[in-house]
Structure formats: structure tokens, C-alpha cells
Computed example of a mutant assay.
Amino acid sequence: MNTYFDNRLVIYQNYFDLKYCQQTFDKLLKEIKWLQKSHNNEGKIVDLPRLTANYGEKSYNYSGLVFNPEPWTDFLLELKTVAENLASVQFNALVLQYYRDGNDRVNWHSDDDSCVGTNPVIVSMSFGESRDFWVRHKTHHDDRHKFTLHSGDIVIMQGDMQHVYVHKVPIEKDKTEARLNLTFRKVVT
């Protein structure tokens, strides 16, 4: 376990073994109801540069998009239990992202929507291709850090992390394989 930014960011490297990671990747890729969502980007309707899905009891809406969550599957409940045990939080929402290759991405953002309350705890699990994960201070842009997340890594963002920092998964043209990312959160409103 590695901690950064005064324990705001915790990374468990290789939390899951490679065999479990491959089985999980294959199962999620096959069983999740992946969506290609579009949004308004400065007056132009464009597809999100990744596929997405929401599961759980509560909807987590973002980028002006509204999601009706699918019910938990037995397997997602198993992963939720892992996340809850690590973070000591009960989660009711899950956002899954399917980065099909290195062209798929998510730009600078923070998960500070009012629906997750003040100082939300978010647990992120990675399966599949390794991808860079950048973190930058919101006001001191030279305070920027790059982490490479591998299959089986778990990241916990907590405290005032979402209010002080933004994060992104950038384009990486040399990445040809897919990555699945699961982010568990507690929606309070």
C-alpha cells in the first residue's frame, strides 16, 4: 500500500492476482450492459471517448448525463464487498468505464458532485491494460503527478481529494488493449 497527498490517495498495487484479474475482465466485458453515451460539447453532440455503465441502488449522473442504474449482480456485489472492507464505507453506486484502447480517455475532472457529499470516499479498481492516471492540484497546476495503474490495482481517493485535486486518464496511442475501471461511491442525495 502506498499513500500520497496526506493520505488523500491510497494505492494498493497488485491487490488481485493476474488469474483473477483476467477472469474478472472477461466476465465484466461479457456481462455488463455497456453504453455509448453522447453529450453536448460546446454545442456539438459527441460520443464519450469510452463506454460506460452504472449499477447499484443510486444513479450517479455526470457530464450532464442521467443514468438509470442497473441492479447489482452477484459478482459486482462481491467486488463491492472488497471495496467496502478496504474503505470502511457502505457504497450504493458503481460507475464502470470501458477504455477500448489507448484512444479512449477521460479528461481532467474531480468527482465532487453534490450528490456524493463533502469529502467523498471513492474506490477505483482496474482490470486489463495498464494506463496512466494523472493527478493535478486544482490551483497549483505545476503540482502534477503521474501514476501507472495496472490490472489488479485498487485506488482509494478520500478526504478533501476531490475538492483539492483533479485527475484524468489521458490518451496513450501506444496502448492497444482494453482497460475496465470500476469506481464505487456513496450517493447521499
Rank of each mutant, 00 (worst) to 15 (best):
G159C: 10
S126G: 07
H150A: 10
V164A: 04
G64E: 04
T118P: 00
L94R: 05
T148S: 12
W134D: 10
F91Y: 08
H140T: 14
V121Y: 08
H145C: 05
T139C: 03
H109N: 05
F133M: 02
V106L: 12
R100T: 12
M125N: 06
P69Q: 11
W108V: 01
W72V: 13
R136C: 09
T139K: 12
S130V: 02
E172V: 09
L65G: 01
T148Q: 11
E129A: 15
R144V: 15
R131M: 06
T148E: 10
L79W: 06
E78R: 14
D153A: 10
E172G: 04
K146E: 10
H163Y: 13
H167G: 05
S124I: 07
H109E: 01
G128N: 02
K138C: 05
D143S: 06
M157K: 03
V164Y: 04
D101P: 05
N119Y: 09
H137Q: 12
S88D: 14
S114T: 11
Q162R: 07
K173L: 05
R136V: 11
L94N: 08
L77K: 15
V169W: 00
T118K: 14
S126P: 03
G117N: 04
T73A: 11
T148K: 10
Q162K: 03
D142N: 13
H109S: 02
V66M: 10
E172K: 11
V106K: 00
L76I: 09
A93K: 00
Y165C: 00
M125L: 12
M125S: 05
L94S: 09
T81D: 13
Q90T: 15
D104H: 05
V66R: 13
T81V: 11
T139N: 14
K168W: 00
K80D: 02
P120R: 05
R136A: 13
